[in-house]
Simulated assay, not measured.
Amino acid sequence: MGLTCGLMPLLGTAHPPTAATTLIVAMGLLRTPAQLAVVMLAVVLLVLQGLAVNRLAGLPYPLWRARS
């Protein structure tokens, strides 16, 4: 995660909000299917919020192809 966060500014890429989720799963903190469902729902809600906010601001998010 540190390498990723260090390279993002150098490569001009957007910050992925999934590092904490990856860490939570890797550490084994999710012990029941219900906990996993809550995390999955939270991820879906964050993606929808990101889409809505960026579209309302007129920003092309996510970038599916290079700008011409």
Rank of each mutant, 00 (worst) to 15 (best):
T18W: 12
L11K: 12
Y61E: 01
R65C: 01
S68N: 08
L48E: 06
L30S: 02
M8T: 10
L3S: 08
L10G: 08
L51C: 06
A20L: 15
P9L: 07
L56F: 09
Y61K: 05
L56I: 08
G2I: 06
M8V: 14
P33N: 06
A66W: 10
A57Y: 00
P9N: 09
L36Q: 12
I24G: 04
L23C: 04
R55G: 00
I24S: 12
P33L: 03
C5L: 15
A52H: 12
L59H: 13
L48M: 13
R65P: 00
L41V: 11
A26R: 14
G58K: 05
R31V: 10
V25K: 15
A26C: 14
N54F: 01
T32Q: 11
I24M: 14
A37R: 13
L56T: 08
G6E: 07
P33Y: 04
V39N: 01
L23Q: 11
A57R: 15
T13S: 10
R65F: 00
R65W: 02
T21N: 06
P16V: 01
L56A: 15
P33F: 00
V38F: 08
G58H: 05
V43E: 12
G2D: 13
P62Y: 02
A20Q: 09
L30H: 02
V43K: 14
L41R: 12
A34K: 14
R67C: 07
P62V: 01
H15C: 15
